[in-house]
Design a protein around this nucleic acid. Structure first.
Lengths: 160, 160
DNA sequence: CTGACTGCAAACCCTTTGCAGACCG
DNA sequence: CGGTCTGCAAAGGGTTTGCAGTCAG
């Protein structure tokens, strides 16, 4: 799990380094916003980060929080839960199944696997609460996107 | 995987039955919308369903599609991918980790497990594309929600 | 000093809601 | 025929963007 002070300090160093490397300015706001996300054990949304930062910086605006969070995401310092900005998707497959998700285009494919339905979960997880079901998400590059990427790297090397 | 005609016909029967049982009217629009989702191998969003239905029913409106999809969800005939309608959430934990998700309140907790990082994935999945990483999502009722539920069922049976 | 960054406000997208007419049962 | 459902249009919430002033380097 995350350790209070030490690890965050390390992350802050990474942040400084990444900024310098990419020629991004290290403003007071960005520092506070980064601290807020890095220190949070939850997975806060922009609004929550905003409120947290606001206590120490009453003048920040919500749009700066958004801009900074996506900046941190681009710098590879944080990630997002779920897709970047998308509409709700519906699923008519009611059997216990798992998902293949393409990291590039967002394609989602179903697959079933009795073994994956009954994974052994680490004991520590019980501290969160009861376990009802487990779902596996496999991330990768789908065939179509892999093809397009190959085509981009080696144009015409294979017939279409 | 899903078989074209037979299985969808079964699902349609379930739909009729569920409607009758719950006193919900079986309109032309609802039928078409349900067929569209049930037949789709993708996990379409409302807009996609809308366009699909529109080819056969040019008069449907997008709001009816929304209303019907949530109705189907309430009837237990379809589910959604990801949370119902929420803002993007950010995650400063860059290590390969997995998530515990409370089905009631949406709480998300991280946990790590070397074993779960390297699950054996069924061969069929390779047909979708390359596999880069696997993530496990454990669903359950978090301690807080379980407590509230117990409290609701047996008020005062335990000290707070 | 200069270009990048901020705050403001307005725009934007997806989704939901109120209402009058249409339709299922 | 009655109550539900539809389509319309407008509201709603989260997020993004254009602009002029501000600040880091």
């Amino acid at each position: 799990m995350k350790l209070d002070g030490i690890e965050i300090t390390q992350q802050l160093e990474q942040f400084r380094a990444a900024c310098k490397k990419r020629g991004v300015k290290l403003t007071h706001q960005r520092l506070e916003i980064f601290r807020e996300v890095a220190a949070s054990l939850e997975h806060p949304d922009a609004e929550t980060v905003f409120r947290g930062v606001q206590t120490r910086m009453p003048t920040v605006s919500l749009d700066t929080v958004y801009r900074t969070l996506w900046l941190l995401n681009d710098l590879g310092l944080i990630t997002t839960l779920g897709p970047r900005r998308e509409s709700v998707r519906f699923d008519a497959n009611l059997r216990h199944h798992h998902h293949y998700v393409c990291m590039r285009c967002g394609l989602v494919g179903d697959f079933e696997s009795p073994e994956l339905n009954i994974l052994r979960i680490p004991n520590g997880v019980m501290e969160f609460g009861s376990v009802v079901s487990t779902h596996v998400e496999v991330r990768g590059l789908c065939a179509k996107c892999a093809g397009e990427q190959a085509e981009r790297l080696h144009p015409g090397s294979s017939a279409t």
